[in-house]
Design a binder for these strands. Structure first.
Length: 212
DNA sequence: CATGGGATTGACT
DNA sequence: GTCAATCCCATGC
């Protein structure tokens, strides 16, 4: 392979791969604009995918993170290698999807909080049983994609859920806003929520935003 | 072993 | 704006 091919082609299309190597807060920032798809292996179900428009970072050093409690049966996937999915049940009802990052042994992950629907919108509508608000929240997007707890600890590079690069149509680095995380009671002050600037698909209206 | 608290959502006043 | 649904698991006795 030539040096050109190694730099120009893959370099831009591999943003999701580079994000997996970053510290969790930078990873959360970098994953905005990348894509998530659920393509069941059987192939008899329509693939569904979306553009990541909102993320949050969680790290074992701060108490809002499940990994703060240490390595347990529940949190084990958080301490796995980068690129693993951490899917857990929230409020006894919803499945929430995280991208595990940082080296194995460190508990850290990026919560995927909202998507802009791309593929499989009709199937999303059927799964969600409504026409709008298909992926504008962490519980909504897993329902729309058909992602359940059975996909916990699966690979996001090799498994049924795929983390992908930004779509070709999306130019370079998207403008991203940063603010405090939502729905937590501990470490509420950390500005670890990231959102695609101007997106209509976020989970909550954006506070007067700072550019990340 | 009993208990309580969520990284939420949708329905309702 | 309020509130119930619903269940895993960490914590404490």
């Amino acid at each position: 392979m030539s040096a050109d091919a190694a730099q120009s082609g893959p370099a831009r299309s591999a943003r999701h791969l580079r994000a997996l190597q970053l510290p969790v807060v930078r990873a959360a920032r970098a994953l905005v604009g990348c894509t998530i798809a659920h393509e069941p292996r059987s192939g008899d179900v329509t693939p569904c995918s979306g553009l990541i428009v909102e993320t949050e970072a969680y790290h074992e050093q701060e108490p809002a993170c499940h990994a703060f409690a240490g390595l347990t049966a529940r949190t084990a996937p958080l301490f796995a290698a980068p690129g693993i999915a951490y899917v857990y049940r929230s409020y006894g009802i919803h499945a929430l999807l995280n991208v595990v990052v940082e080296p194995a042994g460190t508990g850290a992950a990026v919560l995927i909080r909202a998507l802009q629907p791309l593929q499989g919108v009709e199937l999303m509508r059927a799964r969600r049983r409504r026409d709008g608000d298909l992926c504008s929240g962490p519980g909504k997007l897993t329902q729309a994609l058909g992602v359940g707890l059975d996909l916990n600890a699966t690979s996001l590079l090799d498994g049924p859920i795929r983390l992908g690069p930004p779509p070709p149509a999306l130019p370079g680095e998207p403008p991203v806003l940063v603010g405090p995380r939502i729905g937590i009671t501990k470490a509420v002050e950390l500005p670890w929520r990231f959102c695609l600037a101007g997106s209509r698909h976020v989970s909550r209206p954006w506070p007067a935003g700072l550019l990340a």
